[in-house]
């Protein structure tokens, strides 16, 4: 691959590169590696590093909540307060955006938020794998939400759901112009939802990778600057991970609301 070949060539020629330095390719840690090949009935369910970290995210999310609520008391401890605050935070989002009819989606929204959040945050651990930097993972989530929205819209409104593409008070002669735009923007929803999360995670980790690349290749008096930046950007990535999980969840709520209550 030409980009990594260029990087390797640079690393070979650069002075002061540590012997046995890891592969100096900022995209290397997005590589999905199959640990165990499994393909029952010809269907590939191999266990890769992405899958393992997905499981870890599930385990950490569930473990933290289970630990926090192991013995709930009326006067909450620290962990219980955090768990309750998380519950109320998501309850607030669902209530604000969808309203009372969103109550039945609450467990799904809650799970979605913490699945994405812990995938984002676990990816920041050194040597870990960021599950949400895989377009196929975010794409799967986004497409599932998109399909669910269409299903809900058709289930609740039948053919009237197509009125979703016709804004109110539109002069009829503008219809041929506006309706395709509306359809395209509707179809772009899962794409933008998936790409936003994937691109944020990929960009952040690539940036960290590039900064570490500089840290390793520069001599000691130049290395502290990119290294300091990696510290700053790691902190920033924690924030980005939260914001992106929040936006992913909130947009999911918005889309569900659009499907439930046609505008």
């Amino acid at each position: 691959m030409n980009f990594s070949l260029v990087a390797e060539a640079w690393a070979e020629n650069a002075p002061n590169v540590a012997v046995g330095a890891p592969k100096l390719d900022p995209l290397h840690h997005f590589q999905v590696v199959n640990y165990v090949k499994l393909a029952p009935f010809g269907f590939d369910i191999s266990i890769s590093n992405s899958v393992v970290w997905m499981w870890l995210a599930v385990a950490v999310a569930f473990g933290l909540f289970r630990y926090a609520m192991r013995a709930p008391t009326l006067v909450p401890g620290r962990m219980q307060s955090v768990a309750e605050a998380a519950y109320l935070f998501l309850d607030g989002i669902v209530n604000d955006v969808i309203g009372p009819s969103g109550k039945k989606f609450f467990p799904g929204i809650f799970t979605l938020f913490f699945f994405v959040l812990f995938c984002n945050w676990l990816g920041l651990l050194p040597g870990s794998f960021t599950v949400t930097s895989q377009l196929i993972v975010t794409g799967t989530l986004a497409l599932s939400i998109f399909v669910l929205c269409i299903f809900l819209g058709v289930y609740h409104h039948g053919w009237k759901f197509l009125g979703f593409f016709v804004p109110h008070g539109l002069p009829p002669f503008l219809l041929p112009l506006i309706v395709p735009i509306e359809v395209i923007s509707f179809l772009a929803r899962p794409v933008s939802l998936a790409v936003r999360l994937f691109a944020n995670m990929t960009a952040g980790h690539t940036l960290l990778g590039v900064l570490f690349f500089f840290t390793v290749t520069l001599s000691w008096f130049g290395a502290w600057l990119p290294f300091g930046f990696t510290v700053v950007f790691s902190g920033f990535e924690v924030f980005i991970g939260f914001i992106q999980a929040y936006i992913f969840t909130m947009l999911t709520c918005v889309y569900l609301n659009d499907a439930l209550h046609l505008h």
């Binding site: 933008s192 691109a199 960009a203 929040y246």
Partner: peptide
């Protein structure tokens, strides 16, 4: 939220660059 949305627009450019790569 708005900042994150705008930032995502810039990152679409990055994705485009990766696709070209």
């Amino acid at each position: 939220i708005g900042a994150a949305f705008v930032e995502a627009i810039a990152l679409y450019g990055l994705v485009l660059a990766f696709i070209i790569m």
